[in-house]
Nucleic acid binder design. Structure first.
Lengths: 222, 222
DNA sequence: CCACATAATACTGTATCCATAATTATGGAA
DNA sequence: TTCCATAATTATGGATACAGTATTATGTGG
């Protein structure tokens, strides 16, 4: 295989697999055929296996000894565990971000929020989804705590295993936008405690929306 | 190499390396010679490399492309980032544990606390250290949140990179014991908010003790 | 004597190969 | 016809071999 990037092959493979898992092309529970995948990618099994080890550490796949590799199935209990945790962590991020943000930071944040607004106006779901992710990530970066950021992103990867997670946002686009406006206002006014609580509740609100979809389709892994 | 356990070789190797890193036999910043290590363990480079990928995901080593593998160096900034995070997380654990603990759970917890007391009485540092870890872990398990537990343990692994982290406990054994007594009392009385705050402060108190040692020996990775 | 370039060495990264264990299919017996 | 046992096939885990790149050392020129 022709190598271009300075990054190792196993990392590229890991990233490609992540995308396929997040896109639910590889659905939870499915077995990953090493040989077929390696052939498909035109690489040997060695870097592929190394990539799978990485994904296993991230919790995206499960490596059963002598049994092979399976995409992780996430349960409702997991969602109930993770969302409150994320709410607490992202809430803390918001509080820290308020304390540390400089005017330039706030401006760039407002810019992202504007993109959220315009995407919502035009009903562009994908763009809304994109800007939403960026908004949250930007706040996490503003918190200035590398490890807080790392923990949140690790958990978010696991959440992405759930198909309903992405679906749920569509149904509550307007509500999510409203909540974002409130958060933005709190950040702007420099009210750390308020920003923390609003962000916290924003996350829990996401979990509730997801719960409503769950009742419709009973599959735990969705 | 003679295989006995049903667990994969790369996992055993990863665990052995973890122990060597935590024991500071492999100090932060040192280069890990794959060939030499593989020879030393009597295995090939393949499982060793897979183990290194896992350790890299855990943050214990850094894999620089085409440059090899180095034990992670942890900075004071990292400690300042991680300790407040741990304080928040373990605080939450304590609060959740209070809400969920049944009388049998409380008894087993008291039993561990007793071991802490007796170890302190006899001045058995190792036993104190051991019981201390078990006490914290037990509370995390009682929280019933698998992901909260996982996040905390991941962060603790990183903290273990710091040599001072283990040393600091020795100097404040009595204080740590006092704090544990208060936490135990709060748990026993079922006061979730109090348990959360005490546990939170207990962790921060640990950071402060560590800071005092830092001033003595200026090396950041110690 | 110092600096730069080139060559050699050594380590990382990838591929191929082999052995072992697990699963499945087939055949025989109850 | 069904269940169990044995054999064959297939996939995983580990070892070895090879290629490419980075680093270091040595030699030559200024």
């Amino acid at each position: 295989m022709t190598r271009i990037a300075p990054t190792a092959l196993y990392q590229e493979v890991a990233e490609r697999l992540r995308q396929r898992i997040f896109a639910h092309e590889l659905t939870p529970g499915t077995w990953i055929d090493e040989q077929k995948l390696a052939e498909q990618y035109g690489i040997s099994r060695t870097p592929l296996r190394e990539a799978l080890k990485v994904l296993a550490s991230e919790g995206l796949v499960e490596l059963k000894p002598r049994r092979g590799c399976y995409v992780t199935e996430i349960s409702r209990q997991d969602l109930d565990d993770i969302f409150p945790l994320m709410a607490m962590l992202e809430g803390r991020c918001a509080a820290e971000a308020v304390k540390r943000a400089r005017s330039a930071d706030m401006n760039s944040l407002k810019h992202i929020h504007e993109r959220l607004e315009s995407a919502a106006r035009d009903g562009r779901i994908d763009a809304f989804f994109e800007a939403n992710q960026e908004f949250h990530k930007r706040i996490q970066e503003l918190s200035g705590n590398r490890w807080l950021l790392s923990v949140i992103q690790d958990l978010r990867k696991v959440l992405k295993l759930s198909r309903l997670h992405s679906l749920s946002l569509e149904g509550r686009l307007q509500q999510s936008l409203d909540e974002h406006r409130l958060i933005m206002a709190a950040l702007d006014s420099g009210d750390a405690a308020k920003a923390e609580k609003l962000m916290h509740d924003h996350l829990l609100s996401g979990r509730e929306a997801l719960a409503k979809i769950e009742t419709a389709s009973p599959k735990a892994s969705d």
